[in-house]
Simulated scan of single mutants.
Amino acid sequence: MSFALMMLAGMALDLGLGWPDRLHARIGHPVTWLGKAISALECHLNRGSRNVRLCAGALTTGAIVLLAVLPALALQTALPDSIAGSLIGAVLAWPLIALRSMHDHVAAVAHALAGGDLHGARRAVSMIVGRDPARLDTAGVARAATESLAENSSDGIIAPVFWGVVAGLPGIAAYKAVNTLDSMIGHRTDRYEAFGKVAARLDDVVNWVPARLTGVLFALASGRHVGRGLKAMIRDAAKHRSPNAGWPESAMAAALDIRLSGPRVYGDRVSDEPWLNDGAADPAPRDLFRALSLYRRAMFLCALALGALALL
């Protein structure tokens, strides 16, 4: 069985179909299934002293990963070791690759901004970022959407595909479990700092390679600006609060010749983040369309790499 072919076909399915609304309404989505299990465990176990919460969070993380991996392993074991098995595996992997939904979410922001609808753009960007959209001006909305596109290209596409190539269905299932855990409990708040610590650190580990690969893909997809993107990653990635997100974000910022990151507001807290590609202009609405074009080219390069691996 070719895991590379499995992931390539899974990307093609997601590109063509997304995750249909009717299917979501009928059965939900594997990530929402995991989310319900995480919420139930967190509600019952996230209590007591810091050390107790830390241990409970570690147990929760392990239990959720196993809950995702064991069925995936059983399914993969049952698949024939053939092209047909790879294609069946692609259908199973398809819901865990967010290729189309990422593009559609950012495109909604881009079209609203291009039409001068700041309120609609704020509403659209609130679907993909955690900061307060009501405080964002046009440049702030464009910057938030561009950053989300860059970071989630790694988290939502390259990372699951990478782990799928490495370990097949168990690999992609384990990654999505860890990433979902991090998004739900990996926050630096009084409630989650201890309980979600293991999940957050594990998410950093599993995204280390994919984040850097995503940055390289953005740099390569920028064509004649490839050197500028690579230099920006080396120079700016470590400035980011995340050990991983700075790589794709700095590469995208350099490729588009805009600045990203910088100060932002989460609730009533101001996070004074340094700029990536400092000295460049803030993104304008048209830059979101340029970012989407760069995204499409980078994903095409990813598909070409998967095709080459499948042939080998």
Rank of each mutant, 00 (worst) to 15 (best):
M233I: 15
A245F: 09
W247F: 15
G215Y: 00
F218E: 02
G18N: 08
A112N: 08
Y192P: 08
H119S: 06
P80T: 01
A108Y: 11
M252E: 00
L292I: 02
G115D: 14
A305K: 08
A63Y: 00
L309V: 01
A199F: 02
H225G: 01
R297N: 09
Y175H: 05
L34F: 11
L294Y: 04
L311Q: 01
R228Q: 15
D81V: 11
L45R: 14
K176E: 05
V106W: 14
R296L: 08
D104S: 10
L45W: 12
K36N: 00
S250K: 06
D203F: 02
A142I: 06
V165K: 02
A159L: 03
A139N: 07
R212Y: 00
E151D: 03
R212C: 00
R286K: 13
L213I: 15
D282G: 05
R297S: 12
N244T: 13
L17S: 12
A305C: 11
K239T: 13
M102V: 10
G215D: 02
I157G: 00
V226M: 08
V206A: 00
G18P: 06
N152R: 03
Y175S: 04
A238M: 11
L213P: 03
A237M: 11
R123M: 07
F300L: 09
H225A: 13
P170N: 05
I185H: 05
G223F: 08
A173P: 12
T77H: 10
P160R: 09
A124M: 09
T180V: 01
R212F: 04
R235W: 09
A177E: 00
P170E: 04
L202C: 08
S82V: 04
R228E: 14
A232R: 14
A63M: 10
A159Y: 04
P80G: 03
M184Q: 15
A251L: 01
G16Y: 05
A310N: 07
E151F: 01
A232I: 07
S126C: 02
I234S: 15
I83V: 13
D155Q: 04
A9W: 01
S242M: 14
R290M: 10
A40S: 10
F289S: 07
I234W: 13
R53S: 06
C302V: 06
A298W: 01
A108T: 11
G16S: 07
P160V: 10
L118Y: 00
G120M: 08
S39G: 03
G227V: 15
S39I: 05
I64P: 07
G10T: 05
L73E: 08
